[in-house]
Amino acid sequence: MNSVATPGIGLAALCVVLVAAATAVYWGADLGSITVAPGAALRAVAQLSVVALVLAAALAHLWSSLLVLLVMFIAATLTAAGRAGAGVSGGWLTLAVGAGMAAVLPAMLVSGVVPMTGVAVVPVGGIILGGTMTATSLAARRSLDALTQRRGEVEAALSLGLTDRDARLEMIRSTAADALLPGVDQTRTVGLVTLPGAFVGVLVASGSAAQAAAVQILVLLGLMLAQACAVAVTTELVARGRVWRSGVISGARRRAGCGSR
Protein backbone atom coordinates (compact mmCIF):
# COMPACT_ATOMS: atom_id res chain seq x y z
CA MET A 1 0.00 0.00 0.00
CA ASN A 2 1.61 3.29 -1.13
CA SER A 3 -1.10 5.69 -0.07
CA VAL A 4 -4.13 5.78 2.18
CA ALA A 5 -5.75 8.67 0.30
CA THR A 6 -5.58 8.96 -3.48
CA PRO A 7 -6.86 12.21 -5.02
CA GLY A 8 -10.09 11.62 -6.88
CA ILE A 9 -13.86 11.82 -6.81
CA GLY A 10 -14.14 9.44 -3.86
CA LEU A 11 -11.81 11.50 -1.69
CA ALA A 12 -13.54 14.75 -2.65
CA ALA A 13 -16.98 13.30 -1.87
CA LEU A 14 -15.86 11.99 1.52
CA CYS A 15 -14.31 15.37 2.42
CA VAL A 16 -17.56 17.15 1.53
CA VAL A 17 -19.52 14.74 3.73
CA LEU A 18 -17.13 15.26 6.65
CA VAL A 19 -17.34 19.05 6.40
CA ALA A 20 -21.13 18.93 6.08
CA ALA A 21 -21.36 16.70 9.15
CA ALA A 22 -19.10 19.03 11.15
CA THR A 23 -21.26 21.98 10.09
CA ALA A 24 -24.38 20.14 11.18
CA VAL A 25 -22.85 19.48 14.61
CA TYR A 26 -21.89 23.15 14.92
CA TRP A 27 -25.48 24.12 14.14
CA GLY A 28 -27.20 21.45 16.21
CA ALA A 29 -25.06 21.95 19.33
CA ASP A 30 -24.85 25.73 18.85
CA LEU A 31 -21.04 25.63 18.93
CA GLY A 32 -20.64 28.77 16.87
CA SER A 33 -21.10 30.04 13.34
CA ILE A 34 -21.93 27.34 10.79
CA THR A 35 -19.37 28.91 8.46
CA VAL A 36 -16.45 27.90 10.69
CA ALA A 37 -16.02 24.35 9.36
CA PRO A 38 -16.55 25.16 5.65
CA GLY A 39 -14.30 28.20 5.93
CA ALA A 40 -11.53 26.24 7.61
CA ALA A 41 -11.87 23.43 5.07
CA LEU A 42 -11.64 25.75 2.07
CA ARG A 43 -8.62 27.49 3.57
CA ALA A 44 -6.91 24.14 4.23
CA VAL A 45 -7.53 22.97 0.66
CA ALA A 46 -6.17 26.20 -0.79
CA GLN A 47 -3.11 26.30 1.45
CA LEU A 48 -2.20 22.65 1.01
CA SER A 49 -2.67 22.85 -2.76
CA VAL A 50 -0.20 25.72 -2.94
CA VAL A 51 2.18 24.01 -0.51
CA ALA A 52 2.09 20.79 -2.53
CA LEU A 53 3.05 22.67 -5.69
CA VAL A 54 5.82 24.60 -3.92
CA LEU A 55 7.23 21.55 -2.16
CA ALA A 56 7.28 19.51 -5.35
CA ALA A 57 9.85 21.96 -6.68
CA ALA A 58 11.53 23.02 -3.43
CA LEU A 59 12.33 19.56 -2.07
CA ALA A 60 14.50 18.82 -5.09
CA HIS A 61 17.26 21.04 -3.66
CA LEU A 62 18.58 21.51 -0.13
CA TRP A 63 18.89 25.30 -0.40
CA SER A 64 15.29 25.72 -1.52
CA SER A 65 14.13 23.34 1.21
CA LEU A 66 15.89 25.46 3.83
CA LEU A 67 14.20 28.53 2.35
CA VAL A 68 10.82 26.83 2.77
CA LEU A 69 11.72 26.03 6.37
CA LEU A 70 12.65 29.68 6.95
CA VAL A 71 9.26 30.81 5.66
CA MET A 72 7.61 28.28 7.98
CA PHE A 73 9.70 29.65 10.87
CA ILE A 74 8.54 33.21 10.21
CA ALA A 75 4.92 32.08 10.03
CA ALA A 76 5.30 30.11 13.27
CA THR A 77 6.75 33.12 15.10
CA LEU A 78 3.98 35.42 13.88
CA THR A 79 1.37 32.84 14.90
CA ALA A 80 2.86 32.43 18.39
CA ALA A 81 2.94 36.21 18.90
CA GLY A 82 -0.65 36.54 17.70
CA ARG A 83 -1.97 33.79 19.95
CA ALA A 84 -0.19 35.28 22.95
CA GLY A 85 -1.75 38.68 22.31
CA ALA A 86 1.65 40.27 22.82
CA GLY A 87 1.40 42.83 20.04
CA VAL A 88 4.69 44.19 18.71
CA SER A 89 6.55 42.77 21.71
CA GLY A 90 5.70 39.32 20.36
CA GLY A 91 8.63 39.72 18.01
CA TRP A 92 10.85 38.70 20.90
CA LEU A 93 9.29 35.24 20.71
CA THR A 94 11.48 34.68 17.67
CA LEU A 95 14.22 33.96 20.22
CA ALA A 96 12.08 31.32 21.94
CA VAL A 97 11.09 29.50 18.75
CA GLY A 98 14.63 29.83 17.44
CA ALA A 99 16.10 28.40 20.65
CA GLY A 100 13.93 25.31 20.34
CA MET A 101 14.88 24.73 16.73
CA ALA A 102 18.59 25.45 17.32
CA ALA A 103 18.72 22.92 20.14
CA VAL A 104 17.43 20.06 18.01
CA LEU A 105 17.63 20.39 14.22
CA PRO A 106 21.41 21.00 13.86
CA ALA A 107 22.15 17.98 16.06
CA MET A 108 19.88 15.80 13.94
CA LEU A 109 21.58 16.94 10.73
CA VAL A 110 25.20 16.92 11.94
CA SER A 111 24.80 13.44 13.41
CA GLY A 112 23.57 12.16 10.05
CA VAL A 113 20.46 10.63 11.62
CA VAL A 114 18.35 12.96 9.48
CA PRO A 115 19.75 13.04 5.90
CA MET A 116 20.85 16.42 4.58
CA THR A 117 18.16 16.35 1.91
CA GLY A 118 15.10 18.49 1.43
CA VAL A 119 12.70 15.56 1.54
CA ALA A 120 13.92 14.78 5.08
CA VAL A 121 14.74 18.24 6.46
CA VAL A 122 11.40 19.91 5.74
CA PRO A 123 9.08 17.23 7.22
CA VAL A 124 11.16 16.65 10.36
CA GLY A 125 11.92 20.36 10.78
CA GLY A 126 8.26 21.18 10.26
CA ILE A 127 7.14 18.79 12.99
CA ILE A 128 9.68 20.20 15.46
CA LEU A 129 8.76 23.75 14.49
CA GLY A 130 5.04 23.13 14.90
CA GLY A 131 5.45 21.71 18.39
CA THR A 132 7.82 24.50 19.38
CA MET A 133 5.38 27.14 18.14
CA THR A 134 2.53 25.64 20.15
CA ALA A 135 4.58 25.47 23.35
CA THR A 136 5.82 29.03 22.88
CA SER A 137 2.37 30.51 22.28
CA LEU A 138 0.86 28.61 25.23
CA ALA A 139 3.66 29.60 27.59
CA ALA A 140 3.49 33.27 26.57
CA ARG A 141 -0.30 33.47 26.73
CA ARG A 142 -0.61 31.73 30.07
CA SER A 143 2.23 33.75 31.56
CA LEU A 144 0.68 37.03 30.49
CA ASP A 145 -2.73 35.88 31.73
CA ALA A 146 -1.16 35.02 35.10
CA LEU A 147 0.37 38.47 35.38
CA THR A 148 -3.03 40.02 34.69
CA GLN A 149 -4.82 37.88 37.26
CA ARG A 150 -2.08 38.13 39.91
CA ARG A 151 -1.09 41.75 39.44
CA GLY A 152 -1.61 42.47 43.13
CA GLU A 153 0.76 39.66 44.09
CA VAL A 154 3.39 41.05 41.74
CA GLU A 155 3.07 44.45 43.41
CA ALA A 156 3.31 42.82 46.84
CA ALA A 157 6.47 40.98 45.83
CA LEU A 158 7.98 44.23 44.57
CA SER A 159 7.19 45.91 47.88
CA LEU A 160 9.16 43.16 49.63
CA GLY A 161 12.24 44.07 47.64
CA LEU A 162 12.12 41.59 44.73
CA THR A 163 13.20 42.84 41.33
CA ASP A 164 10.66 43.14 38.51
CA ARG A 165 12.05 39.97 36.95
CA ASP A 166 11.93 37.89 40.12
CA ALA A 167 8.47 39.13 41.07
CA ARG A 168 7.03 38.20 37.69
CA LEU A 169 8.89 34.91 37.59
CA GLU A 170 7.31 33.83 40.89
CA MET A 171 3.87 34.26 39.33
CA ILE A 172 4.45 32.67 35.94
CA ARG A 173 6.94 29.81 36.37
CA SER A 174 4.45 27.04 37.19
CA THR A 175 1.83 28.39 34.79
CA ALA A 176 4.22 28.51 31.86
CA ALA A 177 5.39 24.98 32.59
CA ASP A 178 1.87 23.75 31.82
CA ALA A 179 2.66 24.43 28.16
CA LEU A 180 4.94 21.40 28.22
CA LEU A 181 2.26 18.96 29.36
CA PRO A 182 0.77 18.16 25.90
CA GLY A 183 4.17 17.17 24.53
CA VAL A 184 5.09 15.14 27.58
CA ASP A 185 1.72 13.37 27.57
CA GLN A 186 2.07 12.57 23.88
CA THR A 187 5.47 11.00 24.51
CA ARG A 188 4.21 8.99 27.48
CA THR A 189 1.17 7.61 25.65
CA VAL A 190 2.60 7.09 22.16
CA GLY A 191 1.67 3.65 20.87
CA LEU A 192 -0.92 3.19 23.62
CA VAL A 193 -3.35 6.00 22.86
CA THR A 194 -2.17 7.43 19.54
CA LEU A 195 0.03 6.67 16.56
CA PRO A 196 1.44 10.11 15.65
CA GLY A 197 2.02 11.39 12.15
CA ALA A 198 5.69 10.49 11.77
CA PHE A 199 5.00 6.84 12.62
CA VAL A 200 2.04 6.60 10.27
CA GLY A 201 3.90 8.48 7.55
CA VAL A 202 6.79 6.00 7.49
CA LEU A 203 4.38 3.05 7.41
CA VAL A 204 2.38 4.60 4.57
CA ALA A 205 5.63 5.15 2.66
CA SER A 206 6.19 1.38 2.87
CA GLY A 207 8.73 1.57 5.68
CA SER A 208 8.95 -1.15 8.31
CA ALA A 209 7.36 -0.89 11.73
CA ALA A 210 10.85 -0.71 13.27
CA GLN A 211 11.78 2.22 11.02
CA ALA A 212 8.53 3.95 11.84
CA ALA A 213 9.12 3.53 15.56
CA ALA A 214 12.69 4.83 15.29
CA VAL A 215 11.61 7.96 13.42
CA GLN A 216 8.78 8.62 15.85
CA ILE A 217 11.04 8.24 18.90
CA LEU A 218 13.52 10.68 17.36
CA VAL A 219 10.78 13.22 16.68
CA LEU A 220 9.18 12.94 20.12
CA LEU A 221 12.44 13.27 22.03
CA GLY A 222 13.47 16.15 19.80
CA LEU A 223 10.15 17.83 20.47
CA MET A 224 10.59 17.50 24.23
CA LEU A 225 13.95 19.28 24.07
CA ALA A 226 12.79 21.94 21.62
CA GLN A 227 9.67 22.73 23.64
CA ALA A 228 11.56 22.83 26.93
CA CYS A 229 14.06 25.32 25.49
CA ALA A 230 11.29 27.43 23.95
CA VAL A 231 9.28 27.59 27.17
CA ALA A 232 12.38 28.42 29.23
CA VAL A 233 13.24 31.33 26.92
CA THR A 234 9.60 32.49 26.76
CA THR A 235 9.36 32.53 30.55
CA GLU A 236 12.53 34.57 30.82
CA LEU A 237 11.36 37.04 28.17
CA VAL A 238 8.04 37.61 29.95
CA ALA A 239 9.74 37.86 33.36
CA ARG A 240 12.13 40.50 32.03
CA GLY A 241 9.27 42.46 30.47
CA ARG A 242 10.44 41.93 26.90
CA VAL A 243 7.16 40.24 25.99
CA TRP A 244 4.20 42.03 27.45
CA ARG A 245 0.54 42.78 26.90
CA SER A 246 -1.08 46.19 27.22
CA GLY A 247 -2.06 46.59 30.88
CA VAL A 248 0.13 43.69 32.03
CA ILE A 249 2.88 45.89 33.42
CA SER A 250 4.00 46.16 37.01
CA GLY A 251 3.64 49.37 38.94
CA ALA A 252 7.40 49.73 39.12
CA ARG A 253 7.69 49.51 35.36
CA ARG A 254 4.92 52.05 34.84
CA ARG A 255 6.59 54.45 37.25
CA ALA A 256 9.87 54.05 35.43
CA GLY A 257 8.10 54.88 32.19
CA CYS A 258 10.07 52.38 30.14
CA GLY A 259 9.05 49.80 27.60
CA SER A 260 10.99 47.00 29.30
CA ARG A 261 13.23 46.35 32.16
Rank of each mutant, 00 (worst) to 15 (best):
Arg188Met: 09
Glu236Ala: 09
Ser89Tyr: 09
Leu53Pro: 04
Gly90Gln: 04
Ala44Ile: 09
Leu95Gly: 06
Glu170Ala: 07
Ile9His: 12
Gly125Trp: 01
Val238Asp: 00
Tyr26Asn: 06
Leu160Asn: 00
Cys15Gln: 10
Gly82Ser: 05
Leu218Met: 15
Thr23Val: 01
Thr189Ile: 04
Gly247Pro: 03
Ala52Gly: 14
Val193Gln: 07
Gly10Leu: 06
Val17Gln: 00
Ala20Leu: 14
Gly85Tyr: 10
Ala198Tyr: 12
Arg151Thr: 00
Arg188Ser: 05
Ile249His: 01
Leu11Cys: 00
Asp145Asn: 12
Gly197Asp: 05
Thr79Pro: 04
Ser49Tyr: 13
Thr148Gln: 12
Val219Asp: 13
Gln211Asn: 11
Arg242Glu: 09
Val36Met: 11
Ile34Glu: 13
Val51Pro: 09
Ala22Arg: 06
Arg254Val: 04
Leu129Pro: 10
Val231Trp: 04
Gly112Pro: 02
Ala99Arg: 00
Gly112Asn: 01
His61Lys: 12
Ala213Thr: 15
Val36Trp: 12
Thr187Lys: 02
Thr187Leu: 11
Ala209Val: 13
Gln216Val: 05
Ala228Pro: 14
Val104Gly: 14
Leu18Ile: 08
Ala256Ser: 14
Ala102Arg: 03
Ala230Leu: 03
Arg240Asp: 12
Gln186Arg: 14
Pro106Asp: 13
Gly257Lys: 08
Leu105Asp: 05
Gly28Asn: 07
Leu225Asp: 05
Ser64Phe: 10
Ser89Leu: 06
Ser143Tyr: 02
Thr189Asn: 13
Thr163Gln: 04
Ala5Lys: 03
Ala56Cys: 07
Gly207Ile: 03
Met133Trp: 10
Gln216Phe: 01
Met1Trp: 10
Leu147Asp: 06
Arg142Trp: 09
Ala84Tyr: 01
Gly241Leu: 09
Gly247His: 08
Leu158Pro: 09
Ala99His: 08
Thr77Asp: 07
Arg43Tyr: 05
Ala239Thr: 02
Arg261His: 11
Gly197Pro: 02
Asp145Met: 05
Val200Thr: 12
Thr117Gly: 07
Leu195Met: 12
Ala96Pro: 09
